[in-house]
Every structure is written in C-alpha cells, then in structure tokens.
Design a protein around this nucleic acid. Structure first.
Length: 623
DNA sequence: TCTCCAGTCC
C-alpha cells in the first residue's frame, strides 16, 4: 500500500516516481495513481510543502492538470485557514503564469476575500488579463463579505456597464446588505427596478426573498406584501422571511396564521422559522404557541442547535413562571456558546435575580467561554440592580482586560452602574475617557447627575450636548426633567418641556408628563400642574394622580386633594398606598369622619397597609 | 443564494 495516498492499488505515477527517485520520500512506495488523490492525502495530513513540490514537478513535466487542480487546492487552503500556504500557491501561479487563467485568478480572489485581504484581491482583479463573469462576481462578493459595501456597488455598476448580466444570487447578497445598511434604501429599490426592467436577469426565489426581507427592513410593509404575493414559487426561506417581517413589525396576529398557511401549502418550517416564531411567543398571550413550536422543533431535532436553545430559553424566561424550564434547557444544552450564556444571564438580570446572574457569569468564565460586550451589558446591569460598587469595580476591570473599553454600550452601562452605586466620580471618569459617545452616553451622565441631585450640572451637560450637535431623544428629555425635579429647578424644567413640545421632534410620553406634573406639584405650583392635566394628550396614569395628591399633602392643599381623591382611587382601586395617603391627609387636617370613610373603603376592598421592612443580605459577592 | 438568537439610557 502506498504510504502517501494510502491507495491499495494503482500504477506508478510520475510524481510519486519523482519523489521516490529523488529520495524525498524514502519510505514511500511508488504506487500512487492520480495527482488529485495525492493532493487530497497531502491536504488531509497538512503536508503543504509536498503539494508545492508536486505542483512544481507537474509544471516541469508540462502536465495538463494544473489549471484544474490549483483552484481546488487554493479553495481548500483558504477553508483550512492556511494563509501562508495560500500565498505560496499565489506565488507559484505568478511564477508559472497560471494566474492568467481566469479560473485560477478567480480562486485567488476568493482566497484573499476569505482572509479579509481586500487589497490583494483587488490587485489580482486589476492585473488579471482574462476576466470572466465569475471574476467580477468574486470581487463583488469579496467586498460584500468584508463590509466594503460602496466598493461592491461600484464594481457591480462597472460590471453591468461592461455588458455583464449579474446573477440573481449575487444581487440577492447585495440587496440583503442594502436592507441592513442605513441609507441604502434607494440602492435596493433601484436594483429592484433593474430586475423588473432587465429581463435578462431573470426571477428567482432567492432574489424575491431578498427583496421581501429588504422591504420589511425598510418598514415598507405594503411593498413587502406585493413582493410576497407576486412570488410564483415560495420556499421555506421565503415563508420564514414573511413570518420574520410580521414579527419585526410586531404584527404577531399575522405571523401565526402565516405559519399555518405555510404548513397548509406543504412547506416545512425549518430551524430559522422556529427561531423567528419563538421570538413572537415571548410576547404575552402567545406563550401557548411557544410550547407548540418547542414540540415541533424537538421532533425535527433542532434542539441541538445553540441558536435555537438560545431563542427557546429567552422565550421561557420572558414567560415568567417558566423559568425552571429555561433552566432545564440550559442545563441540558451541551454546546453553550456566548450568546446562550448572555441570554440566560440577561434574563436573570432583567427578572431582578442579580445574584444568580453574577453566579452564572462566574460559571461561564470557569467553563472558559469568553464573554463579549452583550454579556458585559447583562452582568453590569445585574450589578447595577444590587448597587454593589465592589462588584461593579471588579467588572470594570474585566471589561478593561477583555478589551471592551472601547464599546460605547459597555461605557454607557458603566456610567449607569457607577451612578446607581453612589459613585458619581466613576460615572464622570468613564464619560471623560470614552473615545466615542452617542446620545445614550450623554443621557446616562445627565441621569447620573440627576440621581445625585446635581440639577445644574445635568442642565449644563444637556446644553453642551445640544451645542455639540448630539440629538437628544425622549430618554434624554426624561433624564433632564427628572434632574430638574430632584434639584427643584422648576423654571428650567418647564422651559425645556415647552421647547420640546413646540418642536414636535421628540414624542412626549406619559412619563414626561408625569415628571413635569411632579416637578410643578412638589414646588407648590399645584394650579399649573392641574392645567397640565387638562392639556395632556393621554389619560393620566396612577403615578400622575398619586404624585399630585402627595404634593397636596406636602403643601397642605386639602381642597385639591379632595377633588383628586376619586381619580386616584379609580386609577388604582387595589393599591393600599393610595388609601393610606388620603388617610394621612385627612388626619393632618383633623377630618376624622372622612378618614373613617377611607378606612371603611379599605376594609371593604380587604386591603391592608404594607409596612416597610429592611432586608438583610447574606453577604456581598466577591470578585 | 435569501430567512434566525443575547443588548446600554427611563
């Protein structure tokens, strides 16, 4: 048996004879058959130098097979991440002039694309004498894979002008990027127009699905529906794109009938369909569908996929009482990737079980899974919930060590964490050290100032933010109003509210109105607060009523409190706190009869006053 | 070749 290609039979071939006679393989018997078999064996054993030797010999003997063999070896070496060997193969092609064959240069372009060496790929394209449609495709794909969207479009345009008709598969990739890239809507629509006008391109289910997804991502629901209805053939991917589109638009009532229609048409939902549907099942009222999808996926064997497990766990975590199921699935998943860990840690953190979230983070590290920035967001949030500065500082250190100091989101989470842990200096320092900031960064520090009663500084920062051209959003406004509220800056808060309301650029929500009403009430401007109640475009929430009644208590305005009392009780009939508040107001003014009535009403509702208590924690977690 | 999972500020 030949020890190179391990074949049992075959006649002596030229290359093996050569190696044998030159003593390159003194232990090899010359019984190999074809060069391609030998290459396969060399590749599987990692004997790259021997492949180069073999190519040299084939070239010297003018063997015809090189233009056929070289591309497949280049492809194999790029799949195996052998950068150095792949570059040597390129050198070999240059030296032997095989690079002038389109099939060879195409494979070299694809190889450089895989190694993210866009410049080398471009150089090969520019110097190649024979370009076929695949050469153009390879370069466009190279740009797309490496995030160079503008360059990809330039080449696509060039190719079209050179008379090349782009393949639907290629256009599908381009359209897919258009949907994901902000500001590329026009290009996607132009490509759609081109496909409609130029009949040479032809229709394909891939391309139509890409357009369907594209229009959903552009929030053009009607166009998406037109594309979907116009599709002659629909496969599981097109149905999945339709279902995902409905879910992204929060149109859950449409997503499930679509899923039924898909099955009725005889199209089997795949793993991606199940994952997309699980997202919708996490919404209140759709949990029963989630169990159904779980059962279906179990039968189809999707459960072994970590992406699926992640979506499943997320769904069970969102459905409150099913956390034990989420835990069971998590324990039963053998391949836990960083997404799965982050998902579980995030779920515990959101539910307020911060200690469990931190414990899982430690477990994740002990299992040697590297956290990413989403993991840090989840675990920093957990630490913020328990206001543990010691734990937060430890996490900050980890963030630094793991190289996530440059992440804006992580920086924002740290600003919030330091503020909630009582360390305003920490928040300020993070803000100052951040290389890039977004509107959330500014909102976070404004909020931090507000929490610490530094209203003036919060306002100053808000003005600076606007001067620097960073657009505030609804949350920034809420943070500023809240800061004004904490610091008693009534005039400033009122002015900002008026400005934002007049601009109409930022939609004001019930929270903004509640904050303003609270601000006015606390400062004794109860009549102004009542005016706001009249003009607000939404129904006042229980929080608005209770903050106003509290303000009445603070400023001794029994008259207004009595007027508001029925609204307060109606907004939250089962909240004992509201009755207690009224009790106290009546008692303070000596209205004992009214007080008795409130007490009776409380009894009637079988409500008990909840007494405050301090919780003693077992101990701080160590990091 | 198109479709899918975790997320900071209130």
């Amino acid at each position: 048996m030949c020890s190179v290609c391990e074949s049992e039979f075959g006649e002596s071939s030229l290359p093996c004879m050569f190696f044998f006679t030159r003593g390159l393989f003194t232990t090899v018997a010359p019984t190999c058959s074809s060069p391609s078999n030998q290459i396969k064996t060399f590749l599987s054993k990692g004997l790259y130098y021997h492949i180069l030797q073999l190519f040299t010999q084939l070239h010297l003997s003018a063997h015809y097979s090189i233009p056929f063999l070289l591309p497949s070896v280049i492809r194999a070496s790029s799949s195996a991440q052998c950068h150095a060997f792949a570059t040597q193969l390129h050198c070999f092609a240059l030296k032997t002039a095989y690079h002038s064959e389109a099939v060879v240069s195409n494979s070299i372009i694809t190889m450089y694309a895989k190694f993210s060496d866009v410049e080398s790929a471009r150089q090969v394209f520019d110097t190649s004498s024979h370009r076929d449609p695949i050469t153009w495709n390879s370069l466009i794909n190279c740009y797309l894979q490496n995030g160079c969207f503008e360059e990809a479009l330039e080449v696509l345009k060039d190719a079209y002008l050179h008379g090349l008709v782009p393949k639907p598969e290629l256009l599908a990739s381009v359209v897919s990027v258009c949907g994901r890239k902000i500001g590329s809507r026009r290009i996607g629509t132009q490509i759609h127009a081109l496909v409609v006008v130029d009949e040479r391109i032809g229709q394909s289910v891939f391309l139509s699905t890409a357009f369907l997804d594209f229009y959903f991502r552009c929030d053009d629901y009607l166009m998406a529906l037109r594309v979907f209805d116009g599709m002659e053939v629909k496969n599981e991917v097109s149905w999945t794109a339709m279902i995902s589109g409905c879910i992204a638009n929060q149109d859950y009532d449409e997503a499930f009938p679509c899923f039924r229609a898909m099955q009725a048409e005889g199209v089997f939902p795949n793993r991606v369909t199940s994952i997309a549907l699980l997202q919708a099942c996490a919404e209140p009222g759709f949990f029963k569908h989630g169990k159904e999808i779980h059962g279906y996926a179990f039968r189809r064997g999707f459960e072994s996929c970590s992406t699926f497990s992640s979506a499943l766990i997320n769904m069970y975590c969102h459905c409150g009482e099913s956390l034990h199921l989420a835990e069971l699935i998590f324990e039963g998943t053998c391949c836990r990737d960083v997404v799965l860990w982050s998902s579980v840690i995030g779920s515990y953190s959101r539910r307020g079980d911060s200690h469990k979230a931190l414990e899982l983070f430690n477990k994740m590290r002990s299992e040697e899974t590297e956290p990413n920035y989403v993991t840090f967001l989840a675990v920093i949030s957990a630490c913020t919930n328990i206001s543990s500065l010691k734990c937060g500082c430890g996490l900050h250190g980890h963030v630094f060590k793991c190289g996530f100091s440059f992440s804006i989101s992580v920086g924002n989470a740290l600003i919030n964490m330091y503020a909630k842990c009582g360390c305003l200096d920490g928040s300020r320092k993070i803000f100052q050290e951040m290389w890039n900031r977004d509107s959330v960064t500014w909102s976070s520090l404004i909020n931090a100032y507000g929490l610490h009663g530094c209203g003036k500084q919060a306002l100053h920062l808000f003005y600076e933010m606007r001067e620097r051209g960073v657009k505030p959003d609804a949350i920034t406004i809420l943070a500023v109003l809240s800061a004004c509220n904490h610091a008693g800056l009534v005039a400033e808060g009122q002015q900002i509210f008026k400005q934002v309301n007049a601009d109409c650029k930022i939609p004001l929500t019930i929270e903004h109105y509640a904050c303003l009403v609270d601000l006015l009430g606390r400062s004794g401007k109860l009549e102004d607060a009542l005016e706001i109640l009249k003009i607000m475009p939404m129904k006042p929430s229980a929080r608005v009523w209770s903050s106003l009644v509290s303000a009445c208590k603070l400023h001794g305005r029994l008259d207004i409190a009595e007027m508001l009392a029925p609204h307060l009780i109606r907004s939250e009939p089962n909240n004992a706190g509201n009755y207690t508040l009224l009790n106290m107001i009546y008692a303070e003014h000596g209205h004992w009869l009214d007080r008795e009535q409130v007490k009776k009403a409380m009894k009637l509702q079988r409500l008990m006053k909840c007494y405050g208590f301090s919780r003693i924690e077992a101990g701080d977690e160590s990091f």
